[in-house]
Design a binder for these strands. Sequence first.
DNA 1: ATTCAACCTGACCGATTGGTCAACTTGCGA
DNA 2: TCGCAAGTTGACCAATCGGTCAGGTTGAAT
Lengths: 225, 225
Amino acid sequence: MNDVTESELQRPRQAGESNGATRERNEREILEAAERIFAQYGYRGASVQAIAEEAGLPKSNVLYYMGNKRGLYVRLLERMMARWNALLDDISVDDDPAEVLEAFIRSKMQLSRRHPEGSRLFAAEILGGAPFLQDYLRGELREWVRTRARIFEQWAERGLMDPVDPVWLIFLIWSATQHYADFEAQVLGITGRDEITDADVERITRFLTQVILKGCGVRPPGSGA
Amino acid sequence: MNDVTESELQRPRQAGESNGATRERNEREILEAAERIFAQYGYRGASVQAIAEEAGLPKSNVLYYMGNKRGLYVRLLERMMARWNALLDDISVDDDPAEVLEAFIRSKMQLSRRHPEGSRLFAAEILGGAPFLQDYLRGELREWVRTRARIFEQWAERGLMDPVDPVWLIFLIWSATQHYADFEAQVLGITGRDEITDADVERITRFLTQVILKGCGVRPPGSGA
DNA sequence: ATTCAACCTGACCGATTGGTCAACTTGCGA
DNA sequence: TCGCAAGTTGACCAATCGGTCAGGTTGAAT
């Protein structure tokens, strides 16, 4: 139909308002609310009405900004994928395995901690068979895993770590770090706490780093070449 | 109202049928179908209609047997809890840590493999904040974890393993083993396979056993006292 | 003062939701 | 042959679903 970018370039375009500020603010609040609701109930279980109430807006207004439920959901998934893709973006065979693995565990933990709803949204999508993420899993993410796996293998060849299957090692780290966001209710229920503190996250990070590094025969950082 | 057990004892009770066989068969098929649907869509996202179609029965028939959606869901959760409770039911401080940990990892992997839908159902429930499982998590399951954790601690005191936090160790094993059922779509998408075979499960089990045991300083089985 | 795009929203739509109910069939025991 | 509980199911209900739309308000630019 009409190319938005072009028409925006042709004319100043924003009237009836002091900027794109209203849109920006409302969209942000809708996205936040939707992330919570979708994470809690899944795609089908979440209703636009519930998202609207969470955002403190009429349902019509939510649909005005987001078009439809499906588009809103996909937009949230893409936002989360972008956050994930930014992780461990540049590692090389010449890096120190211990440092890289620790950085991976740490940044993954922080991603789950900073965006627990996004993390749960992702988990719910995959739990349901990943109907919207098939292409991403079989494309971008597969490549991401492959390149890292190759580096792990080379480390093993150089004797810097045990010859464990690198893909399953990545899955192990993924699952362990994901757990504290996705199954927060379980962790809290069993430990008897009422929230996970920053100190907890730090302890968990250290625990996972220690066990996983030792478990695949990587010497801890700073123990020389 | 009426005590079913008593009236069943007073009279043969089953008429209009050759046994309780019809009920048994239909209930089994409904439970199977419901497990799949609830696992895929979550409690809210699943519809009784969808469950009925999956079971090949009219919606009315499903409700005739199960009463209502909520009861059906709770029944499935309880069935899965019973399976979980049967796990690692009797361990002692005097057992070999390596053997116990390997048995734990192995039986947990097999539980997830044998009942992938039940496993995903459980995961979806917890992901949504465990609205139906609060009591279980804060009660039975907490005790289960505590008693095992105490044994791990004693092993550490005896120098049979590193002094790692036993609760987080249990969570690590839980999350790693759970992953292959819950995020099967992700594992398949990334590895490029179209199913997880028994051989895969065996390899993953060995990988996890090796890394986790080594990671917390447990000597592999058979290396003597 | 007029214009106009952005913003806002109640009313409404057909479809689907969980659940009820009454009428029906089935088939063994007496 | 008849009684009777178990089993079966289509019709129906109010509530909610995702989505549309017409008719409004707002406010900077002209």
